[in-house]
C-alpha cells in the first residue's frame, strides 16, 4: 500500500495525543514542556504533509519554519519561568504552586 496523506496525518494525531496526555497528567513542569514540544511537532508534520500532498510547494514549509522559531522562544521563556518557580517554591510540581500570593 502506497504512503498517502492519511499516513502522515495519523502519525501526527498520535504525536498530538501523547503530547496532550503529557500536558494534562504530569506533575513535573518540565515534562509538561516536553508535551508542548510534541504538540508543536505534530502540527509541523501536518503543515508539511498538506504542503507536499496538496502541491502547495513552499507555503507549508514557511509556516513550519515560523512554528520552529516560536518553539525556540517558548522553550527559553518557559524554562526561565520554571527556574524562577523552583527558586521561590523549591518545587516544580504544577499542583503545588497554585498560590498567587505568599
Amino acid at each position: 500500500m502506497h504512503i498517502t496523506l492519511t499516513h502522515y496525518l495519523l502519525v501526527s494525531a498520535a504525536l498530538f495525543s501523547f503530547g496532550v496526555f503529557a500536558v494534562i497528567s504530569k506533575r513535573n513542569a518540565i515534562i509538561v514542556l516536553m508535551g508542548i514540544e510534541l504538540i508543536l511537532n505534530s502540527a509541523n508534520i501536518n503543515f508539511l504533509a498538506f504542503s507536499r500532498f496538496g502541491n502547495l510547494n513552499m507555503e507549508g514549509q514557511m509556516a513550519a519554519i515560523f512554528v520552529i522559531i516560536l518553539a525556540a522562544a517558548e522553550a527559553a521563556i518557559a524554562l526561565a519561568i520554571v527556574l524562577n518557580i523552583f527558586k521561590r517554591f523549591n518545587t516544580v510540581n504544577v499542583d503545588e504552586v497554585s498560590t498567587l500570593k505568599d
Binding site: 516536553m34 514540544e37 520552529i68 525556540a72
Partner: peptide, 30 residues
C-alpha cells in the same frame, strides 16, 4: 520524506541542539 530537507536540518539544529539541551538544563537545575 515530506520533501523538506532544509526543515529537517533546522529541526535537528534547533530542537536537538537547542531546545533539548535547554530542557536537560531545566531538569538538572530544578
Amino acid at each position: 520524506l515530506l520533501n523538506s530537507d532544509f526543515l529537517a536540518v533546522t529541526q535537528i539544529l534547533v530542537y536537538v541542539g537547542g531546545i533539548l539541551v535547554l530542557i536537560l538544563f531545566g531538569v538538572m537545575l530544578t
